[in-house]
Design a binder for these strands. Structure first.
Lengths: 343, 343
DNA sequence: TGCGCCATCCAAAGCGGTTTGAGCGTGATT
DNA sequence: AATCACGCTCAAACCGCTTTGGATGGCGCA
């Protein structure tokens, strides 16, 4: 059933039927109702392909996922972000299109979205320092919202981000207050913007208390269980091991815990651990009393917010970029306690 | 730059240019090369919206993700599957479109794909027993491939699946060979098809050795860290606790490990654990010697295979359904050893 | 009575490709 | 020399919708 058929069935022109369905004012209310009823009865759905061609809009938002040839990996955080964003898209009649490409052709993927007209805007994931994709998107004139921020970017851009610096600063202060002075940082890859900010929060807090920055207590790697484990093993084996860890994710936190327990120590008593918790749906940080003390911020919620921002930008093309900084909450769990020999 | 412009620039008709670019035989080779060169020079990309309308094909594959209102969750396995499938799609010029919807409107999502013409086929995720989506897709005439199988389905369908029964049977036998006779099953939700098959593999192996099936050693829940932990805690607290666990996923395996270590036991020595490892990119099971002994099967690879199968079905509309059963390998890690009081 | 103004509806022209059905030279065939 | 087939190219229709720019007719008002 298409527009034309529906129109002839009703003895009306396609024009009128289209207008009736799309709520234009120049159609009689009685006619409109008749059309609506008929549309429902015949289960008419306008063909999206035709709408897209006619209106020149794709009614779709693109997400480019570079394929893990080297560092980056399809990470679990991405899945939750997508879920949040996707929810917003379908509520607004937009499609979400994912483009999984080898990372050397990421640029081309964005260009194609534009030149082939398959997306009205994109979300930029995992921004790095001086991210080259920002000037690229400016150049090709594609609306976008960054999930995170890009330190060093000179062009304006819209973003949604967690206050990573502040979160890690607070977490560090919390550990310091508990008497810990040797705190290991198990960070994500430090060419990623969020990791840079987290380190800053950590060092800022230490410096503010007059404590030295010890490079041997700072590691940076992918946020996997194994790399969390390795980093903790290394630090714990040092001459002057940390009594606490600040860890970039729940998953690497599990590796850290494994390293701690393997040494016969108990997390929360002998060694304190604070993780950053993205509040992933399949990786809940306990229930009643969380396993990990954590800085928590829902990445799914961030997805929702970023998607709303993008749709708004597509609809209104504002000349000022939009910005939204989300604060992480510090939630207390079982993994932290006073520094040994203090309490 | 569109077709018409390119055509006038070349002094040719749109027809000829279109044919030249699409490899039709009735165009002079010299002309074709001239056209190709010009297309590249002007960076011409055909507008997908127009192609889609003209050809009647969407050049896109849909994936419906029901939003976790109750049980189902956006699981990490999904992310890797998507990555594998997406890779195949973009290599073949297809788009991947994700539709995130409340689970009560999942049906409508499939219907919309069809009636609005936005997808040429879909992948069906997480099939359950007697899955109603299979008759639905048959009814609306949408090509599809199931990731997994649907016990109880009467209509034919194409699928890609891991031999879950066999994997868990082998794993159980392996534990039995090590002298374990009390083996706890920490399974996924048992209305999911894969979980049913895994349980069957487990019970089959026990029965074959004349061992009883003890319901108190079988649990079924979401595959999260916390639920793995809870299940293991419960079983270990029983009067006659298991000496080994068979666990549905890496994540729940971590919960099981936590429960074991919390009791002061050591995994691999006091208690053996075998997990199913989906070989997720951000959740690698160790390196040199894997942490967990595991039945392993790459879900990403499954994504690739399922996508290829679907594209083939879309292209050829075979009348026989296609089927592909992948075998999981049993890899030995550090988490298994002889039953206590044996070796 | 005549005029202008709404309210309502419609014909037709896009949107940017693909595809059908001809047309037009040219060289081979009869 | 007339015919034919073939190789190449093109004009135009079409995909299913939106949108522009009229038409038409009824009504109020002078």
């Amino acid at each position: 059933m298409n527009l034309k058929e529906l129109a002839t069935r009703l003895g009306l022109s396609p024009t009128t039927v289209s207008r009736a369905l799309n709520g234009y004012p120049e159609v009689n209310e009685a006619t409109r109702e008749r059309v609506m009823a008929a549309a429902k009865r015949h289960n008419y759905r306008p063909n999206t392909r035709a709408i897209r061609l006619a209106t020149g809009r794709a009614m779709a938002v693109g997400h480019v996922i570079p394929l893990a040839t080297r560092h980056e990996i399809v990470n679990p955080i991405f899945a939750d972000f997508i879920a949040g964003a996707g929810e917003t898209y379908s509520r607004n009649g937009y499609d979400m299109i994912l483009s999984v490409v080898p990372d050397e052709s990421e640029d081309q993927a964005y260009r194609d979205f534009k030149s082939r007209g398959s997306a009205d805007g994109v979300i930029l994931h995992a921004p790095r320092m001086d991210d080259p994709r920002i000037p690229l998107l400016h150049e090709i004139g594609m609306p976008f919202v960054v999930h995170g921020r890009a330190t060093g970017a000179t062009l304006p851009y819209s973003w949604v981000d967690v206050n990573n610096r502040r979160a890690f600063q607070r977490a560090t202060e919390f550990l310091l207050d508990l008497g810990h002075t040797r705190i290991g940082l198990v960070n994500g890859l430090e060419f990623m913007d969020f990791a840079i900010r987290r380190r800053k929060g950590y060092t800022d807090a230490l410096t503010a208390r007059g404590l030295p920055i010890d490079p041997s207590l700072m590691s940076s790697d992918e946020m996997t269980e194994v790399s969390g484990y390795r980093a903790a093993v290394t630090m714990l084996a040092g001459p002057n091991p940390p009594t606490a860890f600040l860890v970039a994710s729940m998953i690497s936190g599990m590796g850290v815990r494994r390293a701690i327990e393997e040494r016969g120590l108990k997390m929360g008593r002998d060694i304190s651990v604070i993780i950053h918790d993205d509040d992933l749906s399949y990786m809940k940080n306990g229930g009643d009393v969380p396993i990990f003390t954590a800085t928590r911020s829902s990445v799914r919620e961030a997805g929702r917010i970023a998607a709303e921002m993008l749709l708004d930008i597509i609809a209104t093309t504002p000349d000022q970029p939009r910005e939204r900084l989300l604060e992480a909450e510090l939630i207390i769990g079982q993994s932290t306690g006073p520094a040994p020999g203090r309490a």
